[in-house]
Design a protein around this nucleic acid. Structure first.
Length: 157
DNA sequence: GCCAACGTTGGC
DNA sequence: GCCAACGTTGGC
């Protein structure tokens, strides 16, 4: 299967890129996704070896801060079964886990955030999901062309 | 803090 | 299965 590209959203208050840098092996479990469309991609489409833009939402500014690599493809999210977790879902069971996650590892932190406004102003990214109004999906596919365009942007920073 | 856009819930 | 009400997301 060819390598695919993704954009994962996260709030810096929740788990920042500095947290990821300090994490063991600079990797983390991408737990807590509770949206079916995003779940389906985590379960079925995101594969080990795929690359991911780490995107800050609810940040000033919002934007892409790093590149990560998927180090473990979709498996059941145990926080759904944990009553003490903020991500607990009473409808999830061991037999029918409902929610899935992947593991990612930091590959490259950008010297500075690439703000959403820059993405919106960059030719070639007009149709990118994250630049569309009302784009709320927290796991988004990125096309190879969009990926390349953003990597080039980062090189010129 | 505002509010538009979107997803989910639940009554019917 | 429809759809109004509600809750959440996320840019600004």
């Amino acid at each position: 299967m060819p390598k695919r590209y993704w954009l994962f959203k996260n709030e810096p208050d929740c788990f920042s890129i500095e947290d990821l840098e300090k994490a063991p092996n600079q990797s983390t479990e991408w737990e807590g996704v509770r949206n079916y469309q995003a779940r389906n991609m985590l379960r079925d489409d995101v594969q080990k070896g795929d690359e991911v833009f780490y995107y800050y939402s609810n940040a000033k500014p919002a934007g892409i801060v790093a590149v990560c690599t998927v180090v473990k493809s979709g498996y059941p999210d145990p926080t759904a079964l944990d009553p003490n977790s903020q991500y607990f879902d009473p409808k999830a069971t061991r037999e029918d886990p409902r929610w899935y996650m992947v593991d990612v590892k930091l590959k490259q932190k950008f010297p500075d955030i690439i703000p959403l406004a820059t993405l919106k102003a960059t030719p070639g990214l007009e149709k990118m999901m994250v630049t569309q109004k009302g784009s709320r999906l927290s796991i988004q596919p990125v096309t190879p062309d969009e990926w390349k365009t953003i990597i080039e942007l980062a090189k010129r920073m």
